[in-house]
């Protein structure tokens, strides 16, 4: 069944139809939430909350719009609210959490794990809106027009935001890489000394 058909059924209170939409988009929404809040458990909760919000408000959804982008908008608003509260209560995002998540696959080599950790550390320093625009563009593959429908504003503004976000991320990644080099060189020297 197509999205418009499932949405029409869900609008009449058909829960199984809505759950089909959930299964179709849960991974994307979870990925988006994960990139925004950088926490697996929170991302799960926020994804569920986003779907609940969508279900409650689905009657107000106009079929001309794209269900997927509408869902993204709901999820991003949930994440923004979460981050706003988190900031208010002084609980900063901790980039070290991500290393633990990566341990799910033991064969993943150490270099990849390092790269993941540095990327998340750099992403953490970006404003949430820049994280959102990078994720929507690079992972969800949205056009600037679609991004503007999710985040508000114009397609031109979405393009400017994206360019700015990538350039800022490049700067932060460079910082992380330099920091990594400094940290790595120190324990190597210590091991060399201890072996002698």
């Amino acid at each position: 069944m197509t999205d418009p058909q499932l949405v029409a059924r869900a609008q009449e209170g058909d829960l199984p139809a809505f759950e089909e939409l959930v299964k179709k988009y849960q991974r994307e929404i979870y990925g988006l939430a994960y990139r925004l809040v950088l926490d697996a458990e929170e991302a799960k909760d926020l994804t569920q909350q986003a779907f609940m919000q969508a279900f409650v408000h689905i009657k107000g959804f106009r079929q001309q719009a794209q269900f997927r982008t509408w869902l993204f908008r709901i999820a991003i608003n949930q994440c923004y609210n979460y981050l706003k509260n988190k900031k208010k209560f002084g609980d900063p995002v901790d980039a070290d959490n991500f290393v633990l998540v990566g341990k799910d696959s033991p064969e993943e080599d150490l270099i990849a794990q390092d790269e993941r950790r540095r990327l998340y550390a750099a992403l953490t320093r970006l404003p949430a809106k820049q994280r959102a625009v990078i994720t929507l563009k690079l992972e969800q593959g949205l056009s600037y027009e679609e991004i503007s429908r999710v985040l508000g504003g114009t397609a031109g503004a979405a393009r400017v935001n994206y360019c700015q976000a990538i350039k800022t991320l490049k700067k932060y990644l460079k910082n992380e890489d330099e920091h990594e080099v400094a940290v790595r060189s120190y324990p190597k020297m210590v091991t060399r000394v201890s072996r002698r």
Partner: peptide, 22 residues
Amino acid sequence: VVRRVKSTAVPEPEPRFWQNFN
């Protein structure tokens, strides 16, 4: 930078995760 973002996908949770989720 773009390559690193794209290659460092969000880790896919275990199947049990989605069972509980649903």
